[in-house]
Design a protein around this nucleic acid. Structure first.
Lengths: 213, 213
DNA sequence: TCAGTTGTGGAATGGATCGTCCATAATCTA
DNA sequence: TAGATTATGGACGATCCATTCCACAACTGA
């Protein structure tokens, strides 16, 4: 060890994330990141390698955060509240997209759309993330089934995949231009159509206040 | 009129679409398009203006085609088959993504993700397209409700938004790495959870053969 | 046939951008 | 304090790419 770094690596990654998030991979210049972080090019390249490696770091952290948010909402708990936790997660994701007035979308979706086809690292990491989210959703659905809030004859794996698709789909249609109120309604509707246990009926169109977060 | 064009404009647009589809906007070079079409740069710029205008033409055509495919599957018809038409559309979209082994995804999603934020033309066109798809879906859902295949107490607008989200979501999670079989299952599950009329019960997890396309 | 007009294609241009280089600065060890 | 090591940051080189330019070709109307 000789001269120590004068910058905080996490701080630099955060700034870099802002740039990539706002403009995508191709759209952000290393000069932008250098200016945004105050680092010189030499430090940047010395610390992170090159643009692709830097993006991989940022993308990786983002994916970790996406899963952590899901874990935060669905950290497990009493089966009686499993459906509430599920509802909370889906509504949170919808709200994130609905309130994204700048239309930046999610870096996971943006990065995958731009790079997954040609960059195995991005493709692999995004697939991993999907799998992790699926597992979390499936666990909560199973819990809700044990408590009788969801029809136990339904396949939790399939319901989990459906909910994941809805969550990622809300992000997609939001970026495509659907208005925030519609996005929130989609989350409600998706939760309302989940199959309830025998003898318990709901309307698909309405919110179910008892389960709202 | 003097010297006539030696190329077919539609043909050039098709080739350009291939390029943009495969590599995105930033990722395709005008040189690529020139080589792919056999045109010289002069002809290209003379006929289409610049890269952005050329992309807008391609994107516009794509959006038109997306709506036409939906119209082809849901062109209206007897109410008795409305649910079948809906099912056919959702399964077709899932199959498109599932069989997209090159992971190119949909140019609508790719273009929106890359450009909608900064290009009002792309944002507007993609929003228009979403609205058109919503209308088609809502019409079929209403028809299925009239026939009694879907609970008439449900809001068709909301169910339409949910199905659109699932369709676009399948494309998103497909690009993110979920396997083809899972994608097909998602389409099945989404159709299976639609609220049926009173007295008619199904399991969310299984296919409903009578409604399969 | 001839002039006028539009299309063609490839060379040239200008600007942008990634990554390297290097003189200098800061810190550690002895 | 001196030498070794690593960090810094801005200038520079090389490349890439969208767009323009221009000499020439093909066609129309007279």
């Amino acid at each position: 060890m000789a001269r120590p770094r004068a910058f905080d690596e996490r701080h630099v990654l955060e700034r870099a994330r802002e740039q990539f998030w706002a403009a995508g991979y191709a759209g952000t210049r290393m000069d932008d990141i250098a200016r945004a972080t105050g680092l010189g090019k030499g430090s940047l390249y010395g610390a992170f390698g090159d643009k692709a490696k830097l993006f991989h770091r940022v993308f990786d952290d983002w994916c970790t955060a996406v899963v952590e948010v899901a874990e935060g909402q669905m950290a497990g708990g009493p089966d009686a509240e499993a459906l509430t936790r599920l509802s909370g997660y889906v509504h949170l994701m919808a709200e994130n997209t609905a309130s994204d007035t700048e239309r930046r979308g999610c870096l996971l979706a943006k990065g995958a759309a731009e790079l997954a086809q040609h960059d195995p690292a991005v493709a692999g990491r995004s697939a991993e993330t999907m799998t992790a989210l699926l597992t979390l959703l499936r666990t909560e659905i199973s819990a809700a089934q044990r408590h009788g809030d969801i029809d136990s004859a339904a396949d939790p794996e399939r319901l989990a995949a459906l909910l994941l698709t809805v969550v990622r789909g809300i992000e997609a249609v939001g970026k495509a231009g659907l208005d925030p109120e519609t996005l929130r309604n989609i989350a409600d509707t998706a939760l309302a159509v989940l199959p309830v246990r025998e003898g318990q009926k709901r309307l698909a169109a309405g919110r179910s206040p008892a389960r709202e977060n």
